[in-house]
Write a protein that binds this DNA or RNA. Sequence first.
DNA 1: CGTGTCATTTTGTGATCACAAAATTGCGGC
DNA 2: GCCGCAATTTTGTGATCACAAAATGACACG
Lengths: 237, 237
Amino acid sequence: MAARNSERTNRPAGNGAATPTTRGATRGQVDAAIRSGLLTGRFIPGKAVTIRGLASELGVSPMPVREVLQRLAAENALEVKSNGRVQVPDMTPERFDEVLKARLLLEPELAERALRSLTRQDIKTLTVIDDEIDSCIVSGDAEAYMQLNHAFHFHIYAASGSQVLLPLIDSLWLQFAPFMRTVYGRVGTVNLVDQHKEAIRAIEQTDAPALRAAISGDITDGMGLLGKEILKNTPGG
Amino acid sequence: MAARNSERTNRPAGNGAATPTTRGATRGQVDAAIRSGLLTGRFIPGKAVTIRGLASELGVSPMPVREVLQRLAAENALEVKSNGRVQVPDMTPERFDEVLKARLLLEPELAERALRSLTRQDIKTLTVIDDEIDSCIVSGDAEAYMQLNHAFHFHIYAASGSQVLLPLIDSLWLQFAPFMRTVYGRVGTVNLVDQHKEAIRAIEQTDAPALRAAISGDITDGMGLLGKEILKNTPGG
DNA sequence: CGTGTCATTTTGTGATCACAAAATTGCGGC
DNA sequence: GCCGCAATTTTGTGATCACAAAATGACACG
């Protein structure tokens, strides 16, 4: 009675009858979950992440998790060590320096490219997001702050319709976000400064150089706080 | 005759006794094969690539192929369409413009960063590669040319020890290489010009601005040929 | 009490399977 | 002869399995 290949529904987990349609729905869900977790700092640098662990946590089989982890490793959001284990890479001064440089090269460029596509409605949305950011800073909600800050920047960048630069910038954010979170957890959010209002004004006036300057300044301001911390926390250099 | 879960060797394919050791050896093999295939233009833009097809072609199970395809899709070297099919993305004027811009932003930067690490031995290697490139141009061997051109650039970039910028540039090359190949197949290699010799001289003299200029010029030269073609071959714009 | 070694458990990997959606083919009707 | 619909094949997806390597824990020995 080898009854093993009979009556295999193959979807005992979670999705009961919710997602009968779209192709690769489970993977998309898993991908979104982990990505958002990385961007809001729910994954700690250096912490190992196991396939089976994540799978059972998300209520799916290990299979989609495997693929998503590979994807994220390809984007350098995760690191596969020589033994196959996957972990959130921890920040080094060199890495930090490179991420900062790359952001300064790419993000102002893409912002400028998006400038002509940004509508009055976008300005309104950005203003709302920035207001929420301000309240997060005072309330000290680091996780919400990170999510909103990401939303602010990528609402601008996404307007460019970019297919090349945007994924590159995405990869960069995934790389520094987890480290960012640990810093905010340590020093709080009250010291945060940004140049979002300058950016909004530049968009309103369709002033490309001013927008570039605002984005550059925002990056420098935001990463400045992180840069000081990283030197403190890497004793062995 | 239920005997299904007994005597499963689980490795009937290819690796007989060659790779009993390293973790994830098969995946690495598959990854290298497909990557190299993309960089030398053995995959044609627009052409669909199937998991099972590649798997049987490489003599492995679909599993490692799936993961590698996901990786490459994450690097934008491949495109997953809404129905799940994977194909080599074809070039559009917008994409081309973005890749060019991104290359010009990132590659000179990384070249300069690598400058201080490049030894006399590296210069020797680069000279050898460039000589081979010259002979490929006259002999018209596009595939070898592409492989050597990649080797030339990345021999420089790799010296930087970069962990962030290098993967970004890697992604960019994977994106335009397949298109590049189709152009060379159409117009030949005789029209190719590069600024490799200027780059080598700049490295010899540790002249950062000159190296940046050489890399920038080389990118502009190399992509210039492609740029003219893409406008011709996208009638629908 | 510390350390090296062995057994156990965890974990990644590759393979195979069953199913659904998509693509392809074949056939009938107009 | 051409178009639309149904049957068939192809293909991606998620699940489960078996195995090996690595990590972990237990235990004996010094």
